[in-house]
Protein backbone atom coordinates (compact mmCIF):
# COMPACT_ATOMS: atom_id res chain seq x y z
CA UNK A 1 0.00 0.00 0.00
CA UNK A 2 1.50 3.26 -0.96
CA UNK A 3 -1.40 5.55 -0.03
CA UNK A 4 -0.07 8.56 1.85
CA UNK A 5 -2.44 9.55 4.62
CA UNK A 6 -2.75 13.27 5.04
CA UNK A 7 -5.36 14.13 7.65
CA UNK A 8 -4.35 17.78 7.57
CA UNK A 9 -6.52 18.21 4.46
CA UNK A 10 -9.44 18.32 6.87
CA UNK A 11 -8.32 21.49 8.58
CA UNK A 12 -6.28 23.28 5.95
CA UNK A 13 -7.75 25.38 3.16
CA UNK A 14 -11.51 25.64 3.15
CA UNK A 15 -12.23 22.08 4.34
CA UNK A 16 -13.31 22.98 7.85
CA UNK A 17 -15.65 25.66 6.57
CA UNK A 18 -17.13 23.31 3.97
CA UNK A 19 -17.75 20.59 6.49
CA UNK A 20 -19.40 23.06 8.83
CA UNK A 21 -21.60 24.48 6.07
CA UNK A 22 -22.47 20.95 4.99
CA UNK A 23 -23.40 20.00 8.52
CA UNK A 24 -25.61 23.09 8.91
CA UNK A 25 -27.36 22.38 5.60
CA UNK A 26 -27.90 18.73 6.55
CA UNK A 27 -29.42 19.82 9.85
CA UNK A 28 -31.62 22.43 8.17
CA UNK A 29 -32.99 20.18 5.47
CA UNK A 30 -33.48 17.30 7.92
CA UNK A 31 -35.22 19.43 10.54
CA UNK A 32 -37.61 21.03 8.05
CA UNK A 33 -38.33 17.71 6.34
CA UNK A 34 -38.85 16.09 9.75
CA UNK A 35 -41.44 18.70 10.70
CA UNK A 36 -43.23 18.21 7.40
CA UNK A 37 -43.04 14.41 7.69
CA UNK A 38 -44.26 14.53 11.29
CA UNK A 39 -47.27 16.69 10.42
CA UNK A 40 -48.17 14.57 7.37
CA UNK A 41 -47.54 11.36 9.29
CA UNK A 42 -49.73 12.23 12.28
CA UNK A 43 -52.51 13.56 10.07
CA UNK A 44 -52.57 10.68 7.59
CA UNK A 45 -51.85 8.04 10.23
CA UNK A 46 -54.81 9.26 12.28
CA UNK A 47 -57.05 9.52 9.21
CA UNK A 48 -56.31 5.90 8.31
CA UNK A 49 -58.09 4.89 11.50
CA UNK A 50 -60.91 7.45 11.18
CA UNK A 51 -64.53 6.28 11.25
CA UNK A 52 -65.17 7.67 7.72
CA UNK A 53 -64.17 5.57 4.71
CA UNK A 54 -63.41 8.46 2.27
CA UNK A 55 -60.89 9.96 4.70
CA UNK A 56 -59.26 6.56 5.18
CA UNK A 57 -59.01 6.19 1.41
CA UNK A 58 -57.34 9.59 0.93
CA UNK A 59 -54.78 8.79 3.63
CA UNK A 60 -54.11 5.30 2.22
CA UNK A 61 -53.57 6.81 -1.22
CA UNK A 62 -51.03 9.27 0.15
CA UNK A 63 -49.10 6.54 1.98
CA UNK A 64 -49.01 4.05 -0.89
CA UNK A 65 -48.20 6.68 -3.49
CA UNK A 66 -45.31 8.29 -1.67
CA UNK A 67 -43.64 5.35 0.02
CA UNK A 68 -43.60 3.14 -3.07
CA UNK A 69 -41.49 5.38 -5.29
CA UNK A 70 -37.74 5.58 -4.59
CA UNK A 71 -36.70 8.66 -2.65
CA UNK A 72 -34.14 9.47 -5.34
CA UNK A 73 -36.91 9.60 -7.94
CA UNK A 74 -38.87 11.98 -5.69
CA UNK A 75 -35.78 14.21 -5.44
CA UNK A 76 -35.52 14.40 -9.23
CA UNK A 77 -39.27 14.75 -9.59
CA UNK A 78 -39.59 17.77 -7.29
CA UNK A 79 -36.40 19.40 -8.58
CA UNK A 80 -36.48 18.72 -12.33
CA UNK A 81 -40.10 17.72 -12.88
CA UNK A 82 -42.27 20.15 -11.00
CA UNK A 83 -40.70 23.64 -11.34
CA UNK A 84 -41.20 23.89 -15.14
CA UNK A 85 -44.95 23.46 -14.53
CA UNK A 86 -45.04 26.57 -12.34
CA UNK A 87 -45.76 30.10 -13.58
CA UNK A 88 -42.62 31.79 -14.90
CA UNK A 89 -42.22 34.47 -12.17
CA UNK A 90 -42.55 31.87 -9.45
CA UNK A 91 -40.09 29.63 -11.25
CA UNK A 92 -37.51 32.42 -11.43
CA UNK A 93 -38.04 33.27 -7.79
CA UNK A 94 -37.56 29.62 -6.85
CA UNK A 95 -34.30 29.26 -8.79
CA UNK A 96 -33.01 32.40 -7.07
CA UNK A 97 -33.95 31.11 -3.63
CA UNK A 98 -32.52 27.64 -3.43
CA UNK A 99 -34.96 25.57 -5.49
CA UNK A 100 -32.81 22.49 -4.89
CA UNK A 101 -33.05 22.94 -1.11
CA UNK A 102 -36.85 23.21 -1.15
CA UNK A 103 -37.23 20.34 -3.61
CA UNK A 104 -35.02 18.20 -1.38
CA UNK A 105 -36.97 19.16 1.73
CA UNK A 106 -40.27 18.36 0.05
CA UNK A 107 -39.04 15.02 -1.31
CA UNK A 108 -37.68 13.94 2.08
CA UNK A 109 -40.74 15.24 3.93
CA UNK A 110 -43.46 13.61 1.85
CA UNK A 111 -41.55 10.33 1.49
CA UNK A 112 -40.82 9.97 5.19
CA UNK A 113 -44.27 11.35 6.07
CA UNK A 114 -45.73 8.30 4.35
CA UNK A 115 -43.45 6.05 6.38
CA UNK A 116 -44.18 7.91 9.63
CA UNK A 117 -47.85 7.50 8.83
CA UNK A 118 -47.64 3.72 9.02
CA UNK A 119 -45.78 3.89 12.33
CA UNK A 120 -48.41 6.21 13.78
CA UNK A 121 -51.24 4.06 12.45
CA UNK A 122 -49.75 1.01 14.16
CA UNK A 123 -49.50 3.01 17.41
CA UNK A 124 -53.14 4.05 17.21
CA UNK A 125 -54.26 0.53 16.37
CA UNK A 126 -52.40 -0.79 19.42
CA UNK A 127 -54.81 1.18 21.63
CA UNK A 128 -57.95 -0.76 22.60
CA UNK A 129 -61.09 0.52 20.85
CA UNK A 130 -62.72 0.85 24.25
CA UNK A 131 -60.37 3.75 25.09
CA UNK A 132 -61.92 5.64 22.21
CA UNK A 133 -65.41 4.62 23.34
CA UNK A 134 -64.65 5.79 26.87
CA UNK A 135 -63.61 9.20 25.53
CA UNK A 136 -66.73 9.47 23.36
CA UNK A 137 -68.91 8.41 26.28
CA UNK A 138 -67.84 11.42 28.33
CA UNK A 139 -69.04 13.70 25.55
CA UNK A 140 -65.77 14.32 23.72
CA UNK A 141 -66.07 14.62 19.95
CA UNK A 142 -64.14 12.22 17.72
CA UNK A 143 -61.59 14.99 17.07
CA UNK A 144 -61.18 15.67 20.78
CA UNK A 145 -60.87 11.97 21.58
CA UNK A 146 -58.03 11.71 19.06
CA UNK A 147 -56.37 14.91 20.21
CA UNK A 148 -56.43 14.35 23.96
CA UNK A 149 -56.43 10.58 24.32
CA UNK A 150 -55.65 8.49 21.24
CA UNK A 151 -52.80 10.47 19.66
CA UNK A 152 -50.96 11.30 22.93
CA UNK A 153 -50.98 7.62 23.91
CA UNK A 154 -50.05 6.45 20.39
CA UNK A 155 -47.13 8.90 20.17
CA UNK A 156 -45.73 7.56 23.42
CA UNK A 157 -46.00 3.97 22.20
CA UNK A 158 -44.13 4.62 18.95
CA UNK A 159 -41.10 6.56 20.15
CA UNK A 160 -38.63 3.70 19.36
CA UNK A 161 -39.71 3.21 15.71
CA UNK A 162 -40.04 6.98 15.25
CA UNK A 163 -36.45 7.35 16.41
CA UNK A 164 -35.31 4.83 13.77
CA UNK A 165 -37.34 6.56 11.09
CA UNK A 166 -35.98 9.96 12.11
CA UNK A 167 -32.41 8.70 11.85
CA UNK A 168 -33.24 7.28 8.42
CA UNK A 169 -34.57 10.65 7.38
CA UNK A 170 -31.39 12.38 8.50
CA UNK A 171 -29.19 9.87 6.67
CA UNK A 172 -31.38 9.97 3.56
CA UNK A 173 -30.87 13.74 3.38
CA UNK A 174 -27.50 12.80 1.81
CA UNK A 175 -29.42 11.90 -1.37
CA UNK A 176 -30.08 15.61 -1.82
CA UNK A 177 -26.53 15.92 -3.11
CA UNK A 178 -27.86 14.49 -6.40
CA UNK A 179 -29.87 17.67 -6.91
CA UNK A 180 -26.84 19.70 -5.78
CA UNK A 181 -27.90 20.60 -2.27
CA UNK A 182 -24.61 21.43 -0.56
CA UNK A 183 -25.18 19.20 2.43
CA UNK A 184 -22.62 17.17 4.35
CA UNK A 185 -22.00 14.39 1.81
CA UNK A 186 -21.80 16.94 -0.98
CA UNK A 187 -19.12 18.82 0.96
CA UNK A 188 -17.05 15.72 1.70
CA UNK A 189 -17.09 14.96 -2.03
CA UNK A 190 -15.93 18.51 -2.61
CA UNK A 191 -12.98 18.09 -0.24
CA UNK A 192 -12.13 14.85 -1.98
CA UNK A 193 -12.20 16.58 -5.37
CA UNK A 194 -9.94 19.39 -4.24
CA UNK A 195 -7.45 17.32 -2.23
CA UNK A 196 -7.69 13.86 -3.83
CA UNK A 197 -7.84 12.49 -0.30
CA UNK A 198 -11.00 10.41 -0.47
CA UNK A 199 -10.36 8.30 2.58
CA UNK A 200 -9.82 11.27 4.89
CA UNK A 201 -12.76 13.24 3.51
CA UNK A 202 -15.20 10.34 3.71
CA UNK A 203 -13.96 9.41 7.16
CA UNK A 204 -14.77 12.93 8.33
CA UNK A 205 -18.28 12.64 6.87
CA UNK A 206 -18.76 9.20 8.40
CA UNK A 207 -17.74 10.34 11.85
CA UNK A 208 -19.97 13.42 11.71
CA UNK A 209 -23.03 11.36 10.64
CA UNK A 210 -22.31 8.79 13.32
CA UNK A 211 -21.96 11.37 16.11
CA UNK A 212 -25.06 13.21 14.94
CA UNK A 213 -27.18 10.06 14.90
CA UNK A 214 -25.85 8.86 18.25
CA UNK A 215 -26.69 12.26 19.76
CA UNK A 216 -30.23 12.11 18.39
CA UNK A 217 -30.68 8.53 19.60
CA UNK A 218 -29.48 9.64 23.04
CA UNK A 219 -31.93 12.53 23.17
CA UNK A 220 -34.78 10.28 22.03
CA UNK A 221 -33.94 7.75 24.74
CA UNK A 222 -34.33 10.54 27.29
CA UNK A 223 -37.62 11.62 25.72
CA UNK A 224 -38.79 8.00 25.85
CA UNK A 225 -38.05 7.77 29.58
CA UNK A 226 -39.69 11.10 30.34
CA UNK A 227 -42.84 10.31 28.37
CA UNK A 228 -43.19 6.70 29.50
CA UNK A 229 -46.73 5.85 30.53
CA UNK A 230 -46.65 4.80 34.19
CA UNK A 231 -47.14 1.07 34.53
CA UNK A 232 -46.25 0.17 30.95
CA UNK A 233 -43.95 -2.83 30.66
CA UNK A 234 -40.52 -3.06 29.05
CA UNK A 235 -38.89 -0.29 31.01
CA UNK A 236 -35.24 -0.55 31.94
CA UNK A 237 -35.68 1.48 35.12
CA UNK A 238 -37.45 -0.15 38.07
CA UNK A 239 -40.94 1.08 38.96
CA UNK A 240 -41.32 3.66 41.71
CA UNK A 241 -42.70 1.32 44.28
Amino acid sequence: MNYQFDWSVLWTGQSGQWLLQGLVTTLEISALAWLLAGALGVLSGALRTAPWAPLRAVAAFYVEFFRNVPLLVWMFFWYFGVPPLLPKPFQDWLYDHGAEFWAGTLALGVYHGARFSEVIRSGIQAIPKTQFEAALSTGLTTMQAYRFVIIPVALRLIIPPVTSESLNLLKNSSLALTISVAELTFQTRQIETYTAKAFEALTAGTVIYLLLCLAIAGVMARVERRCAIPGMIARAAPAEH
Binding site: T130, A134, L136, T138, G139, T141, I229
Partner: peptide, 20 residues
Protein backbone atom coordinates in the same frame (compact mmCIF):
# COMPACT_ATOMS: atom_id res chain seq x y z
CA UNK B 1 -74.96 12.92 19.71
CA UNK B 2 -71.98 14.48 21.50
CA UNK B 3 -74.22 16.67 23.65
CA UNK B 4 -76.45 13.71 24.46
CA UNK B 5 -73.50 11.50 25.44
CA UNK B 6 -72.33 14.23 27.81
CA UNK B 7 -75.52 13.62 29.79
CA UNK B 8 -75.09 9.85 29.90
CA UNK B 9 -72.40 8.41 32.17
CA UNK B 10 -70.92 5.10 31.05
CA UNK B 11 -68.79 2.77 33.17
CA UNK B 12 -66.95 -0.06 31.41
CA UNK B 13 -65.95 -3.50 32.60
CA UNK B 14 -62.29 -2.71 31.87
CA UNK B 15 -62.37 0.79 33.49
CA UNK B 16 -60.79 2.39 30.42
CA UNK B 17 -59.03 5.16 32.27
CA UNK B 18 -56.61 7.17 30.12
CA UNK B 19 -53.23 5.64 31.05
CA UNK B 20 -51.14 8.72 30.25
Amino acid sequence: MTALRAEIGFVFQQFNLYPH
